[in-house]
């Protein structure tokens, strides 16, 4: 893709405008018109493409962060409660 600041104007969006809509864009929760304008802008702006990729990457790894587990005594109590409640 070729970057051309002169083409940014065609999208009607500045980089600053675009960055505010990125999460809606990635969730596909945005009007078709805005989606087209963002697409036009991204086609000619490498910096915004980088920005969108980074937000997408951060969002996608958050559910894979190191897990946390209950302390052993708490887990034991939960097991006892579960066994009592659902035995039989």
């Amino acid at each position: 893709m070729t970057d051309s600041p002169s083409q940014w104007a065609h999208s009607g969006l500045t980089c600053r405008d675009l960055t505010e809509r990125v999460s809606e864009y990635l969730d596909d929760n945005i009007s078709i018109l805005t989606k087209v304008r963002i697409g036009l802008h991204l086609a000619s702006c490498a910096h915004c493409r980088t920005y969108v990729q980074q937000i997408d990457l951060v969002s996608s790894v958050l559910n894979s962060l190191p897990n946390l587990y209950p302390p052993p005594m708490n887990r034991l109590r939960l097991h006892q409660q579960f066994a009592t409640r659902y035995s039989d």
Binding site: W8, T14, C15, R16, H47
Partner: peptide, 11 residues
């Protein structure tokens, strides 16, 4: 105005 002055650098 409104375009990146300090853009994100690719990771």
């Amino acid at each position: 105005a409104g375009h990146w002055a300090f853009p994100p650098q690719p990771w």
